[in-house]
C-alpha cells in the first residue's frame, strides 16, 4: 500500500516526485555544506556519524509518523491536515523566494556557510574528546534541521495521497544524488540555483496544498488530479508577476549580502 498508485491519474504522483525531490535536493545541499565543513576540520568519522544519525532519526520520524497517519487517520482529515501543512510551507517558501529574487532579503550562500562553520570548528587546534563530540553534534544538527522540512513535505505530500513510500524514495534519491555529486564538486555547491529550486517547490507545495484542502473538505475538482496542472501553472505565473512587481517597486538595500546563517532557509 505504501507504493500504491490507485489514483486515476499519475499527475499527482509526478508532481509529488518532483516536489519532494527538489525540496530534498535544496535542503540536502545545505546540509552537505555543513557536513563537509565538519569533516574537513574535525575529521570525517564524526561528520559522517553525525549525518548518519540524523538521517536515521529523520527516517524513523517518516516511518513512525507517516505510516501511522496513513494507516489510522481518516483520509479526508488527513488531506485537510496535509493540505494545510503544504499550503503553509508553500506560501512561506514562495514569500522568501520572491523577496530574495527582488533583492530584499539575502540569498543563501553555501561558501559563506562553509567558511563560517570551518572557522568556528577550527578556532582551537587542540581537539579534546568534548570538541570531538562537537563535530558529531554540528553535523547531526545540520542534517537534522535541514532534513526536518523534507520530513514534513514527505509526510504531507505522501500521506495525503497514500504514497509515503514514493515520497520517501524521491527524498532519498535526492539525498544520494547530492551526497554523490557533492563529494566530487563540494566547493561548487554555491552554484546550485537554490532560489529557483525553492520557487519551483514553493509553487508545487502551494498548488498541492490548495488542492488537498479542497479535496479533504469535500470539493470535487473538475478533471480530478488534472486540476493540479492548472493550479501549478496559475501559481507559477502569479509568482513571476509578483517577482517582477516587487523588483520594479522596491529599492534593494545596498548592504544586502548573501546570508551566512546555515538554518536561514
Amino acid at each position: 500500500m505504501m507504493f500504491a498508485t490507485s489514483s486515476p491519474a499519475t499527475t499527482s504522483l509526478v508532481g509529488l516526485l518532483i516536489a519532494v525531490f527538489a525540496a530534498s535536493m535544496v535542503e540536502m545541499v545545505e546540509a552537505l555544506t555543513i557536513v563537509v565543513a565538519v569533516g574537513s576540520t574535525r575529521g570525517w568519522r564524526n561528520a559522517l556519524r553525525g549525518a548518519a544519525a540524523a538521517l536515521l532519526v529523520l527516517g524513523v520520524l517518516v516511518g513512525a509518523g507517516g505510516v501511522a497517519l496513513v494507516k489510522y487517520a481518516p483520509i479526508d482529515t488527513l488531506r485537510v491536515v496535509a493540505g494545510t501543512l503544504l499550503l503553509l510551507l508553500g506560501l512561506s517558501w514562495l514569500r522568501k523566494a520572491v523577496l530574495r529574487s527582488a533583492g530584499l532579503i539575502a540569498l543563501h550562500d553555501e561558501d559563506a556557510i562553509f567558511s563560517r562553520t570551518v572557522k568556528s570548528l577550527s578556532d582551537d587546534q587542540q581537539v579534546s574528546k568534548t570538541q570531538d563530540a562537537q563535530g558529531f553534534v554540528v553535523a547531526f544538527k545540520g542534517v537534522f534541521v535541514e532534513g526536518m522540512e523534507v520530513v514534513l513535505i514527505v509526510i504531507g505530500l505522501g500521506a495525503s495521497q497514500h504514497r509515503i513510500g514514493w515520497a520517501a524514495v524521491a527524498a532519498g534519491a535526492a539525498a544520494v544524488l547530492v551526497a554523490g555529486v557533492g563529494a566530487l564538486v563540494v566547493r561548487q555547491l554555491s552554484e546550485v540555483p537554490e532560489n529557483l529550486l525553492k520557487t519551483v517547490v514553493g509553487v508545487m507545495l502551494t498548488s498541492f496544498g490548495t488542492f488537498w484542502i479542497g479535496e479533504g473538505a469535500g470539493v470535487r475538482w473538475p478533471g480530478s488530479d488534472a486540476t493540479l496542472v492548472v493550479l501549478v501553472a496559475g501559481f507559477a505565473v502569479l509568482t513571476m508577476l509578483l517577482i517582477s512587481w516587487t523588483r520594479r517597486t522596491s529599492r534593494p538595500a545596498p548592504e544586502i549580502t548573501k546570508t551566512t546563517d546555515p538554518v536561514a532557509s
Binding site: 499550503l87 506560501l91 512561506s92 514562495l94 514569500r95 522568501k96 520572491v98 523577496l99 530584499l104 502551494t206 496544498g209 490548495t210 496559475g234 501559481f235 502569479l238 509568482t239 509578483l242 516587487t246 522596491s250
Partner: peptide, 14 residues
C-alpha cells in the same frame, strides 16, 4: 483565496 494569500504574505513581508 490561495492566490490572494500569496500576494498578501509577499506584501506583508515587504
Amino acid at each position: 483565496c490561495a492566490a490572494a494569500a500569496l500576494i498578501g504574505v509577499v506584501r506583508f513581508g515587504r
